[in-house]
Structures are given as structure tokens and as C-alpha cells.
Design a binder for these strands. Structure first.
Lengths: 403, 403
DNA sequence: TCATATAGTTCAGAATCCATACTAATTCTG
DNA sequence: CAGAATTAGTATGGATTCTGAACTATATGA
């Protein structure tokens, strides 16, 4: 490697870019603050804040709300807040559905549409064309509500190269080396921050941070149970992407050294114990052609509720395997919590005790009680995360909206 | 958590601080460049580089070497290089020795002294007093060679809080909650960048990056085999410390879910299979009171060379356990290499094939051939890393040396 | 010896922040 | 109810540091 990163030189203007983002950060989602509040919180002078806010108002990201009723002495301040009239598009291609949505700067999901489709094996172009029709409706709906789209994100269940807009490999879709290129930006035409390709589990991990259980947990590992088992690491309120951008691949951590062979060629991967197919097979739920994954998980839940021994054993082993991965993450990168989504959230009632018991055996006291949370976001997680990432791009670089 | 980190506002002067460090980065260890080279490489104008270099010359971190013989047309440039007359102190307290050294800005170990001591259970104050005597000799030797010390680092085998100068827990020394405070800075009196407390494995991981096998590998997991098994993550040419500063604790990743109970209270930790005591016990090497760890490892090597079945099995299992941890790290944080130090390096001949075979079984193709390296730094690793970290502090913040 | 090429310096102009002084709008007090 | 006190926000001048263009310095080559 030895990539001596040719860092860009610092210019005088960089200071302003940084401070613009700093001020925006103080407004956060839905938070209202006056110029004086911001000056006190950031350490900038009132004069600088005034100047910065003037620029931010011009971008349209920030709105004045009028005088705040302080009830105290002195001139009341003017409330500032992120504008709910700016938003971003989120889209997801998953194995059994397409989904799109629009999220505004207050974090509200202002539009949402989901289309059940079995996408495995369908040609990339065909899927994208259908997705474009959905996003066109989303864009129109946003326009009707007075929302201007800043950018967008597309989440897919696989490894991606966001810089080149390529899906490197998405085994559960049957995609490999698909270049999306212009088709990506066409999902949100004219949006100043463009459309970025992301990994579905990574997006869901971020959605948990911004719109779910993540904020209260701090730094955590998100594990998504879908056909595959994916994940994302959130540290310091950011996704940790890793040197090559593929961090969080918990599905292929080794949790059972002498275990079964995995589709990845390895052995004893988490996916071979806790993946959808693995759990369902171990529980003896038959694979019915054409039946959706959600339906099979529901059947498993029924079996568990009825006390079926095979099912209970399968889910218990999945919980134990998750514990091995969670301990590994806690030790290796010093995480203190985990959030489980996908079928793990659906099977919470049975996964949770098994996981807790295994944690207590493998590393007692490592995680605080309550450190394992379960996602409430369901199928909107990935698209909310993808849209949220676009919004963060805007909040992190507001200067591109200035002349 | 939700620690909305009160980021400092950007000031105009920050630009210069950043650019000073940027120029220093171009000089790197031993690299020679002219002002024009630096301007071309960084994107700064010649005017800015001249001004920045003038400041850096004043700090003493940089020296002019005189005219470079270009042999080409035009005025020859003046070579610039980091000064070998600036250095930092490195010190290590380990279970069976104390060690100190002085490393200069060219990366050369200019002084080195090691004192064999069995430190387990000795009072902190007593050990520090003895260490201070060693560092006093190191400081004097540095002065005699014309080296000015910028700062220092002290590495200990345990969890530390660098900000407060506290050893939280160092089980193998029997230290717990020891506040070093002023004793730390007293190791390098008057050094402008102070003395920082670090974890021994983390320091060794960095030493590998700066002075060992790390630069060629890029991003890697360092695993140190000592009485305990420690580690450090190096990504993007930096140590990844994790949210709480305790990342890299590979010794207690779970590698054998049904395995033995560990001293940490958990079960199946890497340390229970690959720690010094675990390997020696499994190999049937008796624990002789007063005998140094190095001697026992040597005895194990003899047994291995003689083909002793118990010894071979013990080391083989350690290699397999290491593979589980390495795969976990590769998946979770997208690392592509590992460096093994301590007794793993001493037992390389037997560890290496076992590890390679296990990797091929658990995750074939994940790591490139040659991705597993073994350290050559021996007992100097931690102190070189601790000194190197002090030098990097200086190179990253040269402005503190200016009036 | 002079043209050409490259290294490095000088200086004016622009961007930006801070400190200070100012204006604006509200509550409190006599 | 008028003026003092308090807080919000704006305007202005000075300091820092970058860029760009013009300049000086020192080499090679014809």
C-alpha cells in the first residue's frame, strides 16, 4: 500500500466551510437555536455566527422561525431550524421488494412506497427501470409537498464501490460487477449532492443511528438478518467503513471453527448458523417455492410459539452464534452495544434470551444490561439510512449550494 | 452517549497549523525534498511553502542540507530533511524487563538499554524509580550525541487512560488503578510534547508500521504474544483506538465457543489457547519458578524441533485460534493483513503453517499470500512505538515549538 | 556570453476570523 | 410609564494566511 495520501492543502476558505458545517451541526434534526445559542455552543463570536447563518439561510437548508418567546429579559432571539422543505430520496433494491422514500431534514418520512418483487436473477437494467418509475413518483410527490431534493441514496444487499457506482457482488440478487453509473444520478435528477450507492446493512445501521435505537446506544454493531447476514459498525456517530470500505461483514466472521461450510467457501461463518436459510433449515421449515421470506419467518415464529423443539434449538444456536460475533466486535473495536434487525428483530422473543445467556457465558460483564437492542424500523431501515446519508452529505458540505 | 462533541471552531490560524504538518509529512522519515518538490506535491504555492519552511526551520524539526546536485538545467534546489538532532524517549515496563531507548527523527535507535527484572507484583513507585534512573541515562546519552528530546512514551502491558496518565489494569504486572501523573513527565524533563502512557501491544503495532513490516502491508492487525495476548489495529497509517480507546483486545475474542474458562471470566478466549501459559501448559513444559518466560519459550522451541507430539499439537491449536481472530478482524473491519510478534514470532516456524492451513479452511482466498508477517523488532518494538508516537505528536503539531 | 530553465522571494489582494463598539428589542424597577 | 438593565444581533477595523504575479538567484547549454 503505502498510499501517502496526497492531502489537499489547507486554504483560508476551508475555515469557513468547516464553520458552516459546525453551525449546521448545532441545529441538528429539528433542534431550534438562536444565533446567540450557536455562538455560545461553538465558541465562535456572534459576529461570525451572524455571517455564517446569513450564508446558510441563502442555501435554503436553514429557516428563520421568527422571534423565540424567551420570557426572560433582553431582546429575544430569532429561532433557526433546519428546513423541512429540503429532503433526500432513499431507495432500496432487496431480494423480495423494491422500496423508495423521501426523508426531510427534520427526519420525517414524507413519502414511502414499497413494491413486492422477487428480484433474484432479474437483469439489473430491468430492476433499475422499475425503480426509476418508483422514484419518479417519489420525486413528484416531494415536489407536490414543496420539498426540494438535495440528493439520494440507493441501498443494495451486497458489496459496493460507491465512488464508481458499481455493485461488486450481490449474491442474493445474482448481480456481479454491475456498473450503475448515470442510472444512479437519474433516480434524483438535478439533485446537487447526487445519488450514492450503499450497502443495505450499512445504511440500516445508520438509519438506526439517526432515526432508531442508535443515538441512545452510542457506538454499536448493527447486525441485519436477511437472506444473508450483514452488518455495519457505527462509531463516533459515523459509519466506520474500513480501509477498503467493506467493514461490518459480520455474516462471515467465524463463530464455529469446526462448523459447516459456507457459501463463501469458508467454514463456520455466522451466516451458516444465523442466516435465514440456515435457521429455517435447522428448524425444519420447508422451503416452499415462491413463498416470501417474511412468510417463512412467520411460520418459524408460529413453530416457536408452539414450543417446537427443533425450532427452539435452531434459534437458540443462532443466538449463541450472534453472541460470539458481538463479543468479537466488542473486543476488537471496543464497541459497547449492538442493534439487531431483519429476522433477528422479528424473532426477538426467542433470540434475546439465548443471546443474553451466551454473552453471560462467553464474556460476563462485558456489555451493560440493555446493550442489545432490536430494531423497530422494519423494511424502511435501509432506505431511511440511504436518504439520511444524502442529507448528511449536504449538512457536511453546505458551501456547494452557495454561488 | 450522544456526546455531541463540542468541536472547536475553525480559526484562520488553523490553516497554517495544518499546512505546517502537511509540509512535514512530505519530508517523512529520512526523505529529502526541496521547497519546489513540496509545492508540487502538496498543491501549495511556492510562496506558501517558503513561508512554512521558514517556520519549520525555526522549530529545529527540519534542516537544510545545502544545494542538491540536480545535474539538470536551472537553479538547483536546497534539500530539506527532518533533523536527526531531534528525538524522543521510549520506555517499556514489561513482566520480565525494563527497557528504554531514544529514537531520532530519521527513525534510528540511537540509544538502547534493557534491564531484566521480574516486575510482577513490585510496587509501582519502586518500578518507576528504577525506570527513571534508566531514562536519566538515556537523556544524558542523547544530550551527548547532540539530540534534543521532544517527548516520550511509556508502554505497559495493560489497559491505560492516556489522558489522565493512569494504568487502569495491568494484570500481568499486578497493577490496578495506578496514577502515574507527574512521574510520567519526569521521565523526559522539559520535553515540549510531554510523555504519554500507552498500551504495549498498541505501541508495538505502531512500531511495526514505522520501523518494521507494517508499511508494506498497509492496514493490519498486530497480535503480540506475551504472557497475555494483546493487539493493535493499524488502519490508514494510524492506530485505531476505538471509541473508548481499548480497541485491539484480540486476546479475549472468542475463538472456541465451547472452550476453557479464561482469567477474564469469559470462555474460549484466544488467550486460553494461544497465550504463553496456555501454550506452555498444553505442551507440557513445566512452570519452573524464577525462570524467565523467554527461557521457557526456548524450551518449547527445542521440544518442537525434536518433534514432540504434545508441543506440536499445542502450537498447532494456537495457530488455528489465531486464524479465527484474524478472519474476524478481516471481516469486521476490512483488514487485509496481520503481523505477529512476541512468542508468535519466536515460534514462527511452527505457527506459520498451522495458521496458513486454518485460514485456508476458514476463509479461503480472503487474505493474499504473504499477508501474514512476523515481527523482527523483538523486545524493542514497544519502546520504539512509544517513542515514535511522541515524534508523530511533534510532526503533527509543529506550531507549539514556535513563539 | 547569452538564452533558457528552474528555485526561491517579495508584495499586493482576497478571505476570514476576532474584538470592540454599536443598534435593536425586550423586561424590570421606581 | 419612563428609564435602566439585559440580551440579540450587526458593523467596522485589525490580524493572519493564503494565492498569484512579478521579481531575483543560480544553474545548464549553445
Amino acid at each position: 500500500m503505502n498510499t501517502r495520501t496526497a492531502e489537499a492543502p489547507g486554504r483560508v476558505g476551508d475555515v469557513r466551510r468547516r464553520n458552516l458545517a459546525l453551525v449546521l451541526g448545532r441545529l441538528g434534526p429539528e433542534a431550534v437555536a438562536t444565533r446567540a445559542d450557536i455562538a455560545a455552543a461553538t465558541g465562535l463570536t456572534k459576529a461570525s455566527v451572524s455571517s455564517l447563518v446569513a450564508d446558510l439561510l441563502e442555501t435554503g437548508l436553514v429557516e428563520e422561525l421568527g422571534v423565540t418567546r424567551a420570557g426572560e429579559r433582553g431582546r429575544p432571539g430569532v429561532g433557526l431550524s433546519l428546513s423541512a422543505r429540503r429532503g433526500a430520496l432513499g431507495a432500496e433494491v432487496n431480494v423480495d421488494y423494491l422500496a423508495v422514500g423521501v426523508v426531510d431534514l427534520h427526519g420525517a418520512l414524507r413519502f414511502h412506497e414499497i413494491a413486492e418483487r422477487l428480484n433474484h436473477g432479474r437483469p439489473t437494467q430491468e430492476v433499475l427501470a422499475e425503480l426509476a418509475a418508483l422514484t419518479a413518483r417519489a420525486t413528484q410527490a416531494a415536489g407536490a409537498e414543496g420539498i426540494e431534493l438535495l440528493g439520494g441514496g440507493l441501498a443494495v444487499p451486497g458489496l459496493v464501490d460507491p465512488d464508481r457506482g458499481r455493485v461488486l457482488t450481490a449474491p442474493n440478487l445474482g448481480w456481479r460487477g454491475a456498473s450503475l453509473g448515470q442510472a444512479l444520478d437519474a433516480l434524483a435528477p438535478g439533485a446537487p449532492y447526487g445519488v450514492v450507492l450503499t450497502n443495505e446493512a450499512n445504511s440500516a445501521a445508520l438509519a438506526e443511528l439517526w432515526y432508531g435505537r442508535g443515538a441512545e446506544l452510542g457506538d454499536y454493531l448493527y447486525i441485519s438478518g436477511e437472506v444473508g447476514v450483514g452488518g455495519g459498525l457505527v462509531m463516533g456517530s459515523e459509519l466506520f467503513a474500513g480501509p477498503g470500505g467493506n467493514a461490518g461483514e459480520v455474516g462471515h466472521m467465524v463463530v464455529a471453527p469446526g462448523g459447516e461450510r459456507c457459501s463463501c467457501g469458508g467454514r463456520g461463518c455466522l451466516e451458516t448458523v444465523a442466516g435465514q436459510d440456515a435457521i429455517l433449515a435447522a428448524a425444519g421449515i420447508p422451503a416452499d417455492a415462491g413463498e416470501s421470506a417474511a412468510a417463512r419467518i412467520a411460520a418459524l415464529a408460529s413453530a416457536l410459539a408452539a414450543g417446537d423443539a427443533r425450532a427452539l434449538d435452531a434459534v437458540g444456536r443462532a443466538g449463541g452464534a450472534l453472541a460470539v460475533a458481538v463479543v468479537g466486535a466488542a473486543r476488537l473495536v471496543d464497541l459497547s452495544a449492538a442493534v439487531l434487525g431483519g429476522h433477528f428483530a422479528a424473532l426477538r422473543e426467542w433470540i434475546e434470551p439465548a443471546l443474553a445467556a451466551a454473552l453471560d457465558d462467553l464474556a460476563p460483564g462485558l456489555l451493560a444490561p440493555g446493550a442489545i437492542a432490536f430494531s423497530d424500523l422494519g423494511t424502511t431501515a435501509a432506505l431511511r439510512g440511504a436518504a439520511g446519508a444524502a442529507l448528511r452529505r449536504a449538512l457536511g458540505a453546505p458551501h456547494v449550494l452557495l454561488p
